[in-house]
Simulated assay, not measured.
Amino acid sequence: MENLKKIFIQNEYILSKENSKAVEFKKEEDIIYLLPTKDLCAVIHPKRVENSKPLRNRSNGITHSTAFTLFPKKQHTGQQPIQYGYSFKFISEKELDAFLNSIDQL
């Protein structure tokens, strides 16, 4: 996990919050959550993805979690709305680094 945090920092993201469910990174107006699962997965703010066709096409779909505290909520399977974002899965740290490096152009 420490190597992944370094990749975000090298790409000018600031670690702003961390808990057992997600690590929150900010860069200007972008917010990305890194999920500490066995899959290499990052979640991006819905507005950012919905306004970018290349990001929508690259996304693995919507992910819900109360850990995404800075994301909007919408109704999912529970009684109350829950925060959501678009997930992006990566095969390697190198692929994550390239994605973070290119996200400003998407």
Results as ranks from 00 to 15, higher is better:
45 H>K: 09
86 Y>V: 08
66 T>S: 13
50 E>Y: 02
39 D>R: 08
55 L>Y: 03
69 T>P: 01
47 K>E: 04
56 R>D: 05
20 S>E: 04
77 T>Y: 03
50 E>P: 04
76 H>K: 09
10 Q>C: 05
48 R>H: 14
44 I>A: 10
4 L>V: 13
53 K>E: 11
75 Q>R: 10
27 K>N: 14
68 F>Y: 03
40 L>R: 11
76 H>R: 09
45 H>N: 03
68 F>K: 00
60 N>P: 10
10 Q>P: 04
106 L>N: 10
72 P>A: 03
16 S>A: 12
75 Q>P: 02
22 A>R: 02
48 R>L: 03
86 Y>N: 05
28 E>Q: 10
12 E>N: 14
84 Y>R: 01
40 L>P: 14
23 V>M: 08
24 E>F: 00
41 C>Q: 07
75 Q>C: 07
2 E>C: 09
36 P>T: 03
33 Y>L: 02
99 F>Q: 15
66 T>K: 12
23 V>W: 11
30 D>C: 11
34 L>W: 05
23 V>C: 10
89 K>F: 05
94 K>T: 15
93 E>Q: 14
76 H>A: 14
65 S>F: 01
42 A>H: 07
8 F>N: 13
31 I>L: 03
19 N>V: 09
81 P>V: 01
62 I>F: 06
95 E>T: 14
85 G>F: 01
96 L>Y: 09
102 S>P: 08
33 Y>C: 01
86 Y>F: 08
90 F>E: 08
14 I>K: 11
80 Q>G: 07
41 C>P: 04
39 D>V: 15
15 L>E: 15
78 G>C: 02
85 G>C: 02
18 E>S: 12
28 E>C: 07
91 I>Q: 06
67 A>M: 01
47 K>G: 04
96 L>I: 12
21 K>L: 12
92 S>R: 08
42 A>T: 15
83 Q>K: 00
82 I>Y: 00
42 A>N: 05
51 N>V: 02
61 G>S: 11
52 S>Y: 04
52 S>K: 07
36 P>I: 03
31 I>G: 02
100 L>D: 08
32 I>H: 06
71 F>N: 02
24 E>D: 06
25 F>G: 10
51 N>K: 06
55 L>R: 10
61 G>Y: 09
98 A>N: 13
95 E>Q: 14
37 T>A: 06
47 K>F: 02
73 K>W: 00
